[in-house]
Simulated assay, not measured.
Amino acid sequence: MAKSITEQCLANNQNYAKGQAVHRPAYPGKQPIQPARRLAVVACMDARLDVEDLLGLQTGEAHIIRNAGGVVTDDAIRCLIISHHLLDTNEIVLIHHTRCGMLAFTDDLLKAGLEGDPAAEKLLGQATGRAFVNCGRCASTPSAFHAFRGQIEPLDAPRDEKNMERLAWDVRRGMSSILNHPWIPTGGPDAVTVRGFIYDVDTGKLEEVSYPGPMGSIG
């Protein structure tokens, strides 16, 4: 049986983690609009993730959807629906990563700091290692920052059992949001597959997150 595109990307990642270049940066010439490998990836915007490199993807092979945290937001769902139904992708990969900034705050904390709460400013400054400058105003948007559940930690903290658990919680929440969306089919002839991973920024390796499983606690 032929390997799925996701499995091929995992094999590429093993080579990438060994220091081998698997992405070709040269302009490939004219290509069709549909991604050649029928793959869509939702990943964090973190500068340490080069998604095409770490998955061994070439230009034109996949849709890459990125935001802070690699969170499955309304806009990510919008992109995935268009990607699948109009542009023929049928495999979805979610990628979170270690040392993620989304582990260092809560939505309420960041909003309070932006609005000018001194206690929030102090905590955010301690977490980020830089002076947090408030804006002194409240705003209705964004309605959420989608910080990860659980107790906050300093920015860029090394991986440990607790923050890996928090990352896995959010990967599963994203997978659940996709798998249970009425416009993203998971059965029948038009079905998509969904798999989630945590990328270790210190090793270059992807680690798969099991699903279903725990999706988090606010404590």
Rank of each mutant, 00 (worst) to 15 (best):
K205E: 13
I65H: 10
D74P: 01
R24Y: 06
A21R: 14
M102L: 06
G101Q: 06
G29L: 06
T141G: 10
G125A: 12
L10P: 04
G150V: 07
K18R: 13
V72P: 05
A2Q: 14
A131F: 07
S143I: 15
K3D: 14
H96Y: 04
M102E: 01
I198W: 00
G56C: 05
R78Q: 05
N134Q: 13
V71H: 09
R137L: 08
H181R: 07
G204M: 04
A43S: 15
D200P: 03
V41M: 07
R78T: 11
A68C: 07
A120H: 12
D75G: 02
K30Y: 09
I77K: 00
P154T: 06
G216C: 04
L206Q: 10
N13H: 13
H85T: 13
G19S: 01
F145N: 08
K3G: 12
K162F: 10
L55R: 02
I82L: 15
I5T: 15
D200R: 01
Y27H: 12
T98H: 03
K122I: 12
L114I: 11
A47E: 08
R24M: 08
S143W: 12
V171A: 01
P28S: 09
D107N: 05
A104F: 07
D50K: 15
C135I: 12
Q14A: 14
V42K: 00
E91M: 09
W169E: 00
T59M: 15
E207G: 11
D200Y: 04
G101M: 06
L109A: 09
D108Q: 15
G213Y: 00
T98C: 03
V201Q: 11
E61V: 10
S143L: 13
K3V: 10
I81F: 02
K122T: 14
D75V: 10
R159G: 11
M215F: 03
A21Q: 12
G69R: 01
P154M: 04
R37I: 06
L110I: 12
L94Q: 04
G19W: 04
I5W: 00
A127L: 05
K111D: 09
E61C: 07
T6D: 02
N67T: 13
D88E: 14
S83D: 04
P189M: 08
D107V: 09
A147H: 07
P35C: 07
Q8R: 15
Q58C: 11
V42N: 03
M164R: 13
T141E: 14
G60T: 14
H23M: 08
V209S: 03
L179D: 03
V133L: 14
